[in-house]
């Protein structure tokens, strides 16, 4: 029971903090909506999308980038969780977490799940706005996308934890944006299908093919159309496990406090 109380306490705190920072919620929505409404509209003519899995027909560009933008919401929130860890450390509240009689690994992973649930809320709100804008997926697809987004969010959050363990100051988050978020996002299948990338550059295609974010995006893309990509599922699951182990191993408070 102590584990359940600990886990639910951490989730509740993240929710309360999220609720008290409503501007964070809106800014997290504005970014993908701008991409969807402005960027995608501009590129619609330039980038025609042929029939590829899981789509059954030709689709417009907005429809193609919808899963990628969902993954982008999860990516930004996951990385913000690393920022929040640096904030917690600077504010000392990380110490409160670590002096609990629960194993450190459990506490860190509870935080990962708590942040993933917040990410899921944000991505679901984005899907709702996209639906209102006219970019629709099948109804069952939305239900299937929830676990796919949760798993992808957990993968990105554990990666965020590794980064958070090494980032010393809040100011370094700009570096995280430039060296982690943008390369991960742009070198993936979020904005363009991999075959199109291959036409442009073979080495870029290879990087995109091995980027775990690509698999997160594809997992969501397939789930949104009620399909299951086993490859994407296993890559995301195994990456989550690997990043979790690395995050716990690299978390050494004596380097920080």
């Amino acid at each position: 029971m102590i584990y359940w109380y600990g886990f639910s306490g951490i989730c509740k705190r993240e929710l309360l903090r999220f609720w008290s920072q409503k501007s964070r919620f809106f800014s997290a929505l504005v970014r993908p909506l701008l991409w969807l409404i402005v960027f995608a509209a501009g590129f619609r003519a330039a980038l025609g999308i042929a029939i590829i899995e899981p789509y059954e027909t030709y689709i417009n560009y907005e429809e193609y980038i919808l899963p990628g933008l969902c993954a982008m919401v999860l990516l930004f929130n996951g990385m913000q969780s690393s920022l929040s860890m640096v904030y917690d450390r600077e504010m000392g509240s990380m110490k409160v977490l670590l002096v609990s009689p629960l194993p450190r690994g459990f506490l860190l992973l509870s935080k990962v799940v708590a942040v993933a649930l917040i990410s899921l809320l944000q991505a679901s709100a984005f899907l709702l706005f996209a639906w209102l804008y006219g970019i629709e997926a099948p109804l069952t697809g939305y239900l299937c996308a929830l676990p796919a987004m949760l798993l992808t969010a957990m993968m990105l959050n554990t990666l965020g934890l590794i980064i958070g363990a090494w980032v010393r100051q809040l100011e370094n988050f700009a570096g995280v944006m430039n060296f982690v978020i943008f390369p991960m996002f742009f070198m993936s299948s979020a904005l363009y299908p991999l075959w199109k990338m291959q036409e442009a550059s073979q080495w870029l295609y290879l990087i995109c093919s091995y980027n775990p974010f690509t698999f997160g995006t594809e997992l969501i893309r397939f789930a949104l159309y009620g399909e299951f990509s086993a490859l994407a599922f296993w890559v995301v699951t195994l990456s989550t496990l690997l990043f979790s182990v690395m995050a716990i191993a690299s978390f050494k408070p004596e380097r920080r406090f």
């Binding site: 029971m1 109380y5 600990g6 639910s8 306490g9 977490l97 609990s100 009689p101």
Partner: peptide, 14 residues
């Protein structure tokens, strides 16, 4: 109250 409940949860209290 929220601060106390959060800490209590970390120590196994509802």
């Amino acid at each position: 109250s929220q601060n106390l409940c959060y800490f209590g949860a970390l120590h196994g209290l509802n």
